[in-house]
Simulated assay, not measured.
Amino acid sequence: MRRAQERASQLEGRLRDQIRDDVMPAAEAQALARVRAVRALAEMSDRDREVLMLVSWDGLEPPVAARVMGCSRGAFLVRLHRARRRLERAITDDSSRVAAGATSALPEGGLG
């Protein structure tokens, strides 16, 4: 986890160094967006992170993911919707912090 934090911090620093006149090539913008998404995921609750990962990372359909989590399909869909909103808000908040000059790459404790 510590190495992941260090790599994310180094990546963010390199990307920030490459920004010239507020113009960023598409690949750099995508990489920075991924760093922000990882940071936002690290700050989420375990349940929110699990809901998002079952669908996005593991590729499970909501009915299957609901069974994995031990809840109804409807409850899972509500959890997924709320987790997506929280993730979007966290990424937006992180982008605002970076724009304001904050420098930390990942929260204390990393992803776990």
Results as ranks from 00 to 15, higher is better:
residue 2 R to P: 00
residue 4 A to C: 01
residue 4 A to R: 09
residue 4 A to I: 05
residue 5 Q to A: 06
residue 8 A to W: 09
residue 9 S to M: 03
residue 12 E to P: 00
residue 14 R to K: 10
residue 17 D to E: 13
residue 19 I to V: 14
residue 19 I to W: 04
residue 21 D to G: 03
residue 21 D to T: 06
residue 22 D to K: 08
residue 27 A to M: 13
residue 28 E to S: 10
residue 29 A to N: 06
residue 31 A to P: 01
residue 32 L to S: 12
residue 33 A to C: 07
residue 34 R to E: 15
residue 35 V to T: 15
residue 35 V to A: 14
residue 39 R to H: 14
residue 41 L to K: 12
residue 41 L to W: 12
residue 43 E to S: 15
residue 45 S to A: 13
residue 47 R to G: 00
residue 47 R to T: 11
residue 50 E to K: 15
residue 50 E to R: 15
residue 52 L to A: 05
residue 53 M to W: 07
residue 53 M to G: 01
residue 54 L to N: 13
residue 56 S to L: 14
residue 58 D to K: 14
residue 58 D to S: 12
residue 59 G to R: 05
residue 60 L to V: 07
residue 60 L to I: 04
residue 61 E to T: 11
residue 62 P to C: 09
residue 65 A to Y: 12
residue 65 A to H: 07
residue 68 V to A: 07
residue 69 M to I: 05
residue 70 G to V: 12
residue 70 G to L: 06
residue 71 C to M: 15
residue 73 R to V: 08
residue 73 R to A: 09
residue 74 G to D: 06
residue 74 G to A: 08
residue 76 F to T: 05
residue 76 F to H: 04
residue 76 F to V: 02
residue 77 L to E: 14
residue 78 V to E: 13
residue 79 R to T: 01
residue 81 H to S: 14
residue 82 R to I: 08
residue 83 A to Y: 12
residue 83 A to P: 06
residue 84 R to W: 10
residue 85 R to N: 10
residue 87 L to Y: 05
residue 90 A to N: 11
residue 92 T to E: 15
residue 94 D to V: 13
residue 95 S to G: 14
residue 97 R to Y: 14
residue 97 R to F: 08
residue 99 A to D: 13
residue 103 T to L: 08
residue 104 S to R: 03
residue 105 A to S: 07
residue 111 L to G: 00
residue 111 L to Q: 01
residue 112 G to N: 01
residue 112 G to K: 02
residue 112 G to S: 02
